[in-house]
Design a protein around this nucleic acid. Structure first.
Lengths: 306, 306
DNA sequence: TCTTAGCATAAACTAAATTTATGGCAGAAT
DNA sequence: ATTCTGCCATAAATTTAGTTTATGCTAAGA
C-alpha cells in the first residue's frame, strides 16, 4: 500500500494561492518570496498534468479543476489542523463537547456537576451551534447530533430515539378544546404553529413532516419562520404563544412541572435519534471514554425501539 | 487566516512508520533510507511536544497519542489521494457512481441507457456496496445514500422519501388471510420475517423498528439474520419464502407486475430517504451537473412530504 | 503615456532532507 | 553463553529541493 500523493509543500503553496487567488499575497501569507509560490504551483500543475490557474499576464484565476482541488485540499488540511489542535487541548486536560443549544441547555447543563465528576478533573467546554457542520470545524472530543447513526469514520452511541408529540401550555389547551381530541392533528391551525428554525437538513421532525406522516394536508403553505433555538421555542409554548413539536428527553422537565403538556399521540420514528459521536479509534484519552460511558448511561441506556 | 501545520513531509514519514510500526519498512515503503524516517519522526515529535513512539532498543511502538494522530493523518491523506484520483478519472471522461446493490439494480440499471445519454458521452461506472462508508474510499462523483440529508461538506439532493410497507407474494397472502386485515402488524409471525442485512447503522426500516413504530411487541427476540442484498430479498418474497419490508421506489416494478403485493398501511417516515450526494462546490464537471439533474428529475422531482 | 500591481524566469544561494557509515541494543538461534 | 540478526540512533558528508534576489514582461488604471 504505497501512497500516490503530489509534493505536499506544493499543495500548501497552491492552497494559499487559491485562497487568495493571488500568488503575491499567498507568498506574504506563508512568509516566503513570491517566486517560491510560482514554482510550487507550476510544480503541482506539472504533477497533475493540467493548469490549475488561468494566467492573463498580470493576474491568475482558478480553473474549475483548480477550484475542485482547492476544496479537497483545504478539507484535508483542515482535518490535520483540527487533529493537532485537539491533541494540544487534550494535553492541557481539556475536553470539548459539541451540541445544539437545545441539547446543551436542556440535557447537558442540568447534569453539569455529574459531568465534571465523570470527566475526572478535566475541564469541560462546550461549543454550541444549531449547525452540526460547525462541529467539524472545532476540535471536539465528543459531539451530540441528530441522525440515523450513520457517520462514517465516527463511533456513534445512541442516546435517545426520536419520540415527538404536540406540546402546548395547559391554558392553550383549555382555550382550544379540539386539542384534547384523541388525534388533534387535523384540527391544528396554521397560526398556532411554532417551528424550530431551519431543521430540514437534519431530518428533525418539522410540522411539514408531521402532517406528511399523519397524511393530513399541511395547513401552512410553505415554510414556517423558525425560532432560533429550541429552549426559546419551549419558552414560547410555555407562555401560550402557540404549539410546537416536543421531543421526549428535552421537554421532560417542563412536562413534569406541568408548565406544558403533550397532546395527542406520540410519534416514534425509530432509527432516528440523538447520538453521541466520538473518534472511531477509541482508547485515546481515558477521559473521553469515561465521559462517553457516563453520558450514554445518563440517557437511560436506551436501546433501539425501547 | 494562517494555517498552523507541522512539516508535511514529516507527517508523510510518520504515517508510513505508524502504518508499519517499523521505521525500516517505512523507509522501504517510501523509497528512502532509514535514517530519513528517524529524523522526520523525531522532528514531528519535537513539533508536537510529546513522544509518538515508545522506543525499546530495537523496536518502536505507537503511543496512544501516536495512534490518534495516525488515524487523523491517514484520513487526511486518504482524502487527498481520492481527490487526485477523482480528477484523474474526470480527465479521462469517466464518471463513478456509488450506490447500494438495491439502488443500483432496481433503480439505476433500468434507466442505464437514459443515464448514459444524460452523461453526454462520459463512461459511467458503478461501485456498489451495502456499506456506505465504502463510498468514502472510492473516487465517486456521485453517490446515493439513505439518511436525513445531513452530510457535512456535501451537497445532498433528495431522491425519494422513505415509504415502507409489508410486502408478500399473492400466494403467501391467500395462504395467510390475517395479512389481509387493515393492520396486519400484530398478527405477523417471527418465522415469516425476512430482513435486509445489517442495516441498523443507516436508519433503514427494520422489522424491529417497524414493530417499535407500531407499538407492537417484537415477535423476534433479537436480531434477524439478514439477507445480503435487497434484490435477493425481493426475490425471496416473490418466491413466497416469507414477507419483508418493501420500499416504494424500489419494489414498484414487482408490485405493478403483480408478483408481490403490499399489505396493510404504508409507513412514511418523513425526513428520511434516499439522497443523491455530490461535491458541495459544484460546477466542476458539467457532466456531473447534467447527471445530477437527470437523476433528481427521474426520481419524479419528489419534494419533501410529497 | 506613465504608473502600478502582479506573474514568470534565471541564477545564486541556503537550508532541509537524504545518504552513507557506524555503533548499540534486544531478542532469537546456536 | 555466545553469536547472529533485525532494528533504531547518531554523525558527518552530500544532494536536492526550496528559496531569494534581481529582472523582465504584461495588463489595467490614472
Amino acid at each position: 500500500m504505497r501512497r500516490r500523493l503530489p509534493p505536499l509543500n506544493a499543495l500548501l503553496a497552491f492552497e494559499a494561492a487559491a485562497r487568495h487567488e493571488n500568488l503575491t499575497r499567498a507568498a506574504r501569507d506563508l512568509d516566503v518570496a513570491q517566486p517560491a509560490i510560482t514554482r510550487h504551483v507550476a510544480n503541482l500543475e506539472d504533477w497533475v498534468g493540467s493548469d490549475l490557474f488561468h494566467r492573463s499576464g498580470n493576474a491568475v484565476a482558478l480553473t474549475p479543476l483548480g477550484h475542485e482541488l482547492t476544496r479537497d485540499i483545504a478539507v484535508a488540511f483542515d482535518r490535520l489542523e483540527l487533529a493537532f489542535a485537539r491533541i494540544a487541548r487534550t494535553r492541557q486536560n481539556e475536553l470539548l463537547i459539541g451540541a445544539s443549544f437545545g441539547i446543551t441547555h436542556l440535557w447537558l447543563m442540568p447534569q453539569i456537576t455529574a459531568l465534571r465528576d465523570a470527566a475526572g478533573g478535566a475541564a469541560i467546554n462546550f461549543v454550541t451551534s444549531e449547525r452540526y457542520a460547525d462541529f467539524e470545524r472545532e476540535p471536539v472530543d465528543l459531539s451530540i447530533r441528530f441522525g440515523t447513526g450513520d457517520w462514517p469514520g465516527k463511533r456513534a452511541d445512541l442516546l435517545f430515539t426520536e419520540k415527538t408529540s404536540i406540546i402546548a401550555s395547559p391554558e392553550f389547551v383549555t382555550r382550544h378544546p379540539e386539542l384534547s381530541q384523541p388525534d388533534p392533528t387535523p384540527h391544528l391551525r396554521a397560526e398556532w404553529l411554532l417551528e424550530h428554525g431551519d431543521p430540514h437538513g437534519y431530518g428533525w421532525m418539522t410540522w411539514q413532516r408531521w402532517f406528511a406522516h399523519h397524511g393530513v394536508p399541511d395547513p401552512v403553505g410553505g415554510d414556517l419562520p423558525g425560532v432560533a433555538n429550541y429552549p426559546t421555542l419551549l419558552d414560547m409554548v410555555r407562555c401560550g404563544e402557540g404549539i410546537a413539536l416536543g421531543y421526549e428527553g428535552l421537554d421532560d422537565a417542563l412536562v413534569e412541572g406541568g408548565q406544558i403538556m403533550r397532546v395527542g399521540r406520540t410519534v416514534h420514528r425509530p432509527g432516528l435519534g440523538y447520538y453521541l459521536l466520538s473518534d472511531a479509534g477509541g482508547g485515546v484519552s481515558p477521559r473521553v471514554d469515561e465521559l462517553r460511558g457516563f453520558l450514554t448511561g445518563s440517557a437511560g441506556g436506551v436501546r433501539e425501539g425501547g
